[in-house]
Structure formats: C-alpha cells, structure tokens
C-alpha cells in the first residue's frame, strides 16, 4: 500500500510515511513516560530555581550565549584553513573579475589539453 510513497533511489529506498509513523509512535511513548511523572510539586519555592552551587543566579540577559562565541573551537582548530580562505574574499571588484576570468582561462587550458 505504501509503495507509492516510497522513494526509489536506484540502489536503495526511503519511505517517509513509515518514518513519520515510527516518529509518532516514539513521540507517544515519550509523552506517556512524561505523563507518568510527578505532577504535583510546590511551584513557587526553591525547588524550581536552578542550583548554582549556592551562587546567586545571574540576570537572564547575561547568560545568553551570543553567536560570536559559538563554534569558536571549530574556527580555532581550522585556523590554518580560515586564515587563507577568508582573506581571499577581499571585496575588491577587480579581484572578483580576475577570479572569474582566471577560472575561465583555466577551463580553456583543461578543455584544450583534453581535446
């Protein structure tokens, strides 16, 4: 019945409908486990506050992680790559034209040699 919705990729197949059904079942199981949890607990006491080893909780705005700090490790580890790649994007129009014509010249050579 589901054959019509199965994507044939030549060597394999992919059935999104079955995947969604499985996903829904997993979600329902997760929901059931969540519903088994304790519903009644005192909401306006220390129990709902984060415990930071007894330190005062900082302002919400101060704990927000800004984008510039994300993937710092990745860019730091790839420094050798980025320090070469980023400066190529000079923003100078002449360089843009040079890259375009340079690639064209290179492809000319490749096609000329192959022919």
């Amino acid at each position: 019945m589901l054959d019509a919705y199965t994507l044939q990729t030549g060597t394999g197949f992919w059935d999104p409908v079955v995947w969604i059904v499985v996903f829904l079942v997993a979600f329902l199981i997760a929901l059931a486990i969540w519903l088994l949890g304790e519903k009644e607990y005192p909401r306006d006491t220390q129990a709902v506050k984060p415990f930071l080893s007894g330190n005062v909780e900082p302002e919400k705005a101060d704990v927000h992680m800004r984008a510039g700090n994300l993937y710092w490790g990745f860019t730091e580890a790839m420094k050798g790559y980025y320090s070469r790649l980023v400066p190529l994007h000079t923003g100078v129009l002449n360089d843009y034209v040079l890259w375009f014509l340079g690639v064209m010249a290179l492809v000319f050579v490749i096609v000329g040699v192959a022919a």
Binding site: V86, H89, T90, G91, V92, L93, N94
Partner: peptide
C-alpha cells in the same frame, strides 16, 4: 574599487 569594499569576508 579598493576602498569600496564594505562587503567582504
């Protein structure tokens, strides 16, 4: 052109 490059990187 070398100074008109606010867009780069």
């Amino acid at each position: 052109a070398e100074k008109v490059r606010k867009l780069r990187g």
